[in-house]
Computed example of a mutant assay.
Amino acid sequence: MSTNRSTNGSAGTSTGTAPVVIVGGGQAGLATAHTVQALGMGRPVVLEAADRPAGSWPRYYDGLTLFSPARRSALPGAPFPGDPDGYPARDEVVAYLADYASRLDADIRTGHRVERVSATGSGGFEAVTVDGEVFAASLVIAATGGFSRPHRPELPGLDAFSGTVLHSAEYRRPEPFAGRRVVIVGGGNSAVQIAIELAAHARVTLATRHPLRFMAQRVLGRDIHLWLHRTGLDTAGWARPLLTGGKGTPVMDTGTYRDTIAKGNPDRRPMFTRLDGDQVVWSDQTRERVDVVLLATGYRPGVEYLDGLGALDAGGRPRHDGGVSTTHSGLGYVGLEWQRSFASATLRGVAADARHVLNRLRRQGRPGARRPARAGRPA
């Protein structure tokens, strides 16, 4: 059984050592903890900043549903309950992760936000929390994933826009936007799902740099995620341009999304030129008053606790090869977007990545040794 503890340490408190310290107790961290034990690597310590081990899921919008079916969304050792061909909602995922954590034989410490990770002279690492607790380990896995730091792009006039600006991370439900004019920036799965939900209450436009790209949710009666896995397209590096077209992640659709947008609410328009006061200036130079600009512009990896270690590039992104640090032996990542596959940042992808990373780390030499920096694949 897992041990969940809240922060109660004093500054500088040393709490001993662990074979593996996992930073982050969401889907990536929990899958990694399970894999650590399955590989016989001992009992890991999981450090989670929030008050429960559920990652970013409790903070997502109320109407969120998974883009993969339950049978393809389970973590190792625990089938997802309910209809195996259904698409679980946010609260179902939160409950599933909480139950999964309770069944793990891992030392899960909630309320433990990691402030920094540093290399030690003995060849390992120390993870230090904001309250000064110190956790030493031979291996560290950064599993805070790709959804903890909302990305706000630099758009002309955005900072001076007199209406409401919010990121999709701050959006919860459509009712507060009733009767308002809303422009959503972005054309991914969440952007489209939020736009269609909002359109029942408001007038909504999706502003994108490229036309929306839809991918059939089901092919020959089976979910597309099954075919991606069986064909190997999930992990084939050459397939990434095929899946994204270099123009963003395709929107998974049974046909409902495409048909709804074709009817005009929400509608899709080319990206606006700028914002001016409370107006949006469209690409044809027409102007329109807008109440809300909602940024569905994705996230960046929340790994700022590695800043002082020298493991990140100039943009704050991990230097890694398939989730294994290219700067430090013994350091790995799980849960980054496109870490190894189309599914890397999802429930269905984190377990395979965790096993891949841990197996490679076990084969490395002395943990903690600084490697010469090279051009690793950033997240």
Results as ranks from 00 to 15, higher is better:
Met1Val: 04
Thr3Gly: 10
Gly12Ala: 07
Thr15Gln: 08
Gly16Ser: 06
Ala31Glu: 01
Met41Phe: 03
Leu47Ala: 00
Ala49Ile: 02
Asp51Lys: 12
Ala54Thr: 12
Asp62Gly: 02
Phe67Val: 02
Ala74Pro: 02
Leu75Gly: 08
Gly82Pro: 04
Asp83Trp: 04
Val93Ser: 02
Ser102Gly: 12
Arg103Ser: 11
Asp107Pro: 06
Arg109Ile: 03
Gly111Glu: 11
Arg152Glu: 11
Asp159Val: 09
Thr164Gly: 04
Leu166Trp: 05
Ala169Trp: 11
Arg172Gln: 15
Arg172Asp: 15
Pro176Phe: 06
Ala178Gln: 14
Arg180Met: 12
Val182Tyr: 07
Val183Thr: 13
Ile184Gly: 09
Gly186Ala: 10
Gly188Tyr: 10
Gly188Ala: 14
Gln193Cys: 02
Ala195Met: 08
Ala202Arg: 06
Arg203His: 09
Arg209Ile: 00
Met215Phe: 03
Ala216Asp: 05
Gln217Lys: 11
Arg218Thr: 08
Arg218Ile: 02
Leu220Cys: 03
Arg222Asn: 01
Asp223Pro: 05
Leu226Ser: 11
Thr231Gln: 05
Leu233Arg: 05
Gly237Pro: 01
Ala239Asp: 07
Arg240His: 00
Gly245Val: 07
Thr249Pro: 01
Asn265Arg: 10
Pro270Met: 03
Arg274Lys: 14
Asp276His: 13
Gly277Ile: 09
Asp278Gly: 15
Gln279Asp: 13
Trp282Thr: 09
Gln285Tyr: 12
Ala311Asp: 01
Leu312Asn: 07
Pro318Glu: 05
His320Thr: 08
Thr327Ser: 04
Gly330Glu: 04
Gly332Arg: 12
Leu336Tyr: 10
Gln339Glu: 15
Phe342Pro: 00
Ala343Glu: 10
Ala343Leu: 14
Thr346Glu: 13
Leu347Ile: 11
Arg348Thr: 13
Ala351Glu: 09
Ala354Ile: 09
Arg362Leu: 14
Arg366Leu: 12
Pro367Asp: 07
Arg374Tyr: 04
Arg374Glu: 07
